[in-house]
């Protein structure tokens, strides 16, 4: 892991990977969604509305997985003082928030024909909404930390506190009220027909690649920002 502590080495790899990740991710996710939209059979109970599953479920997983990535990166920053971990955590926040928002949006669009309402105060929906607010709080704290030139470890501490609280929030909200169906896919068994499961897993892989590409692109942007600022400061000192 510390091999990538050197930004130059990391940037060389990142420059190589960003484009392919974005392209492959976009085409795989797009292909799986096109299959879901045109080729997959209509589901017996849910009818045509089931097709939204191929974007709703991957974005939900990645929205939740995004905070796991923030937690791991924050831990790496706090414990090992890894210089790129903080940048990685900050780079994950915006795509994580966007994916969570897409999940809420598609769920709401699905809920209109299926449940007859745009929004219900259901446990799993509400838990995603609170997660979105946590992402927005994280992004706001991150921009305040950057503006004031404060230590990025402050952001990492909030990332970890959020990670400890997310399971508590999730289960308390579930206990509060739930209408959402129970998870259909858990490790080892699946209640889903294979003609839905496989394209879903392919869509998940595609969206994950896309997520990784966006994170790398954002990390490069943050590093380039820091580099440009350092160069300006050097020029100002020389002048």
């Amino acid at each position: 892991m510390h091999g990538f502590a050197n930004p130059t080495r990391f940037l060389r790899l990142a420059r190589l990977l960003t484009g392919p990740l974005l392209l492959v991710g976009l085409s795989v996710a797009g292909g799986a969604m096109a299959y879901g939209l045109f080729a997959a059979p209509a589901e017996r109970l849910q009818g045509e509305t089931v097709r939204i599953l191929f974007i709703h479920v991957p974005t939900a997983w990645l929205g939740m997985g995004g905070w796991t990535a923030i937690a791991v990166a924050s831990l790496a920053e706090l414990v090992w003082r890894h210089p790129l971990a903080g940048i990685a955590a900050r780079a994950v926040a915006v795509p994580g928030a966007v994916f969570t928002a897409i999940c809420l949006l598609t769920g709401s669009i699905w809920g209109r024909p299926a449940w007859g309402t745009w929004w219900v105060w259901d446990g799993r929906l509400t838990s995603m909404l609170v997660l979105l607010f946590l992402y927005l709080a994280y992004i706001a704290l991150g921009s305040a930390v950057e503006r004031e030139g404060a230590s990025s470890r402050i952001l990492a501490i909030f990332g970890l506190v959020g990670a400890v609280n997310i399971p508590i929030i999730h289960y308390s909200v579930l206990w509060w009220n739930s209408l959402h169906q129970a998870p259909s896919i858990t490790i080892g068994k699946s209640a889903m027909a294979p003609e839905f499961l496989w394209p879903l897993l392919i869509a998940l892989a595609g969206f994950s690649l896309l997520f990784g590409g966006v994170v790398l692109a954002r990390m490069r942007m943050i590093l380039a920002d820091a580099q440009a600022e350092a160069r300006l400061r050097r020029m100002a000192e020389e002048a």
Partner: peptide, 27 residues
């Protein structure tokens, strides 16, 4: 403590506090 060195004001602190306080409110 997290926002002590930042001039984010009450809006930032409130945005950070509210999601963390949700479980307390629920129970």
């Amino acid at each position: 403590a997290l926002t002590a060195g930042l001039r984010g004001g009450a809006a930032l602190a409130g945005l950070l506090l509210i999601p963390l306080a949700v479980p307390l409110l629920i129970f």
